[in-house]
Amino acid sequence: MASIRFDNVSKSYGDVVAVDQVSFEVPDNAFFCFFGPPLSGKSTILKLILGLETPDSGEIFFDGQPMHDVSPPDRNVAMVFQNLALFPHMTALENVRFPLVERKIDAATITARVAEVTEKLHMAHILHKPPAQLSGGERQRVAIARALVRDPVAYLMDDPISALDARLREETRVELRRMQQDMAKTLIYVTHDQEEAMSVSDQMLILDAGRVRQIGAPHDLYDAPNSTYVASMLGAPAMNMAGTAEAAGALTHAPDLDRGAKTVGIRPEHLRVAQKAGPGRVTAIEPLGATTILSVEAAGVTWKAALRGQPKHDIGAAVELSVDAGGLHCFDALGNTLPAA
């Protein structure tokens, strides 16, 4: 149990700035998610927390204690690596036991802890096998068990379930969330899947080229992004972005357009499509079952609208677009969100 705080931490590799003056605090017992595109600095931040890398400047604190001179084993953080990093010369059981054996825990405690964790992860039947004989999902469970078996100050997971197929991934992320709440532990999670990040985390930190763009609860980031960057990172399909002039030409009803914004954004679910003569023309229809994604071209911009159910539309038909009240996000020339009117 610990809070983890970064105070103006920077780290470069040669000329490449991987982490640029990053400050944030992960509260105790939080499910905290780092989210960003590849090379945005997520993995470097994890290595800095683990002590595998030393910051060029700035300081990292665990519960207020500076970690600069604390070696990785002494930081007592457990990690699930992106590529799992199992020990290939040991069986699954030996892999899971490893952290406890290396910490000179007595044999009875080790046996009890290992039994508890392996039972929770339903892996008793694979314990005698080396990683080479396990499936991708089984290896993933070994890696997670190796992290869960001890009692660290925090768990770190670097995209741990990306190797699983979609359905198993959904199950596993719910399971991880439940376990984290049961154990009341800080869990720091890295992913490039926005849906995964939003669904499990208490707080999210959005990274862009080594810089923090926004920190907050997932729904706050989704509803009130502070920039076009954050706005476009979250949500699928992505938020519609258009210049104010184009938006004015395309939308019949958009009350906030006169606030001096350079760019406006509208989430697909806030776009209304009316089947009557208007400036829009339907160019594509993607029925997904619960929702239907409609592509509408209007004023030179392709707008995506997420409609509930499977409404009937025809390709090429003229439509009228409008926005729900409060559904318009306004950004200035730099891409920052304008303060609310």
Partner: peptide, 13 residues
Amino acid sequence: PREIEDAALVEGC
């Protein structure tokens, strides 16, 4: 791969 050694380091070696 470095990660395997990193893992051992993190896990207490």
